[in-house]
Structures are given as C-alpha cells and as structure tokens.
Amino acid sequence: MISVQNLYKSFGGKSVLNGIDLEIMEGETLAIIGRSGSGKSVLMKHIIGLLQPDSGKITVDGTDINSVSYADLRRIRQNFGVLFQGGALFDSMSSFDNVAFPLRTFTTMSEKEIENVVLGCLNMVELPGVGTKMPAELSGGMQKRVALARAVALKPRYILYDEPTSGLDPETSNTIDELIQNLADQLNVTSIVVTHDMHSVLNIADKAALVHEGRIHWAGTIDELHRSDDQILRSFVKANEYLIGK
C-alpha cells in the first residue's frame, strides 16, 4: 500500500504540488489524470523518491521513504518497476542487455536463467527477436514495450507508468493498454498510471484521481467517474473524448 499525505513541492518559487493526499491499495490499478503540466509526473517521481517533497509524507508499505537511508530507499525501490515516458532504455546496451540489466544487477541468477527470463519478458511484450537490436534501431512504441519488459523483469509489486501511451498510434496504444491490464491480472501488481489519455484510463484503471492545480481534485472508481457531475472532471473527460474522436 502506498499513501501520500499532504504533499507540497515547488520548483524555483513556482508551486507544483499543493497538498496532495492519495492512497493506492494493494492490487488495484490507479490512473492519475490531469492536464499536461499539472504535476502528475512530479507526483509519480515523489512516490519512488526521485524527488524530495518540500513537506508531506509518502509511505510505502508503512515506511516513510523520505526518512530512511539511501540504501534502504534503494531496497524499497526494488519493489517498483517504472516505465518512463520515453522508455528510458540505456542506449549503450542492446534490448536484451537492457532487460537483463536489473537481473544481472540485483539477482545471482546464472546467465542461462537470465536469458530465459529476458526472452520470456520480450515475448510477453510481443517483441521476440529484438534482443540484439540497439534502442536507437527501435521505433518509439517498440522502445516503450522493451522498457516495459525491463520494468517487469524483476517481478515488481508496484509498477508505475508515466504516460505509457503518449505519442503512440492508437493501435500501439491499445497493445500497451492490454499489456498493462494483463500484468495487473497475471502478476497481481499494483499499478499507477499517469496519463492524460482518457481512453486508456477507461480501458485499464480500477480507480482514477484527477490532479488539478496541485491537488487531487477528484478521486473515485471508474463507475463513479462516469456518474460524476464534477465540472472540471467532466470538461477534462469531454476534451479527451473529443480528441480521441468518440
């Protein structure tokens, strides 16, 4: 369980987060939605301790991640898999080595075992045979899928997705959505999806939280989202539906 309490953060005098409160339960998939620049990604980076809050508290399984040592923080992070916006594949390594990297770093598995796991992960993201390719040789969507394979290689308990479908064509977006859903179902991971793509929210999320002006303006299940008459939420959903063309 992850809980965020009263989180404040500003950059160079410009406040981005103004008291965020959020709870993510074990096994659920939460979509954090909001306009670009509303601070969704900043919130996500706080959850894994990549950014330090000005004030407020973030606990993962009851541990305050900002008061533990760096070594402990890193141990906690090993429970997370993160899919970054651009994939963030290490461009000095092949796809195979990218996926194998966390296994080689954090496990004592033999090279043979690692190979099995890596090929399994690449199959899962439907990219068998790209192992020898360098990230630069892959398309944006393929990079994201390899990055996803890397994020799940260590079988994390939490997976954070930062704009998993942005910049992708609708078909690839759907593939990614399916992958996220499958992972949630098969591995019973807790997922946090930061997105402004309402289409994918409706596809994959159990719950949604709208970040507006640095606060959680609205939070609830997808059913509640459909029924809500909150003005800001409605306009956000509408704008999205219009863009997607529904």
Partner: peptide, 9 residues
C-alpha cells in the same frame, strides 16, 4: 535513463 537507474534501486 538516470531516473530509470535510480528507480530500479
């Protein structure tokens, strides 16, 4: 990529 390294632990 640096964030990715950090996020991995």
């Amino acid at each position: 990529q640096i964030d990715a390294l950090e996020a991995m632990g």
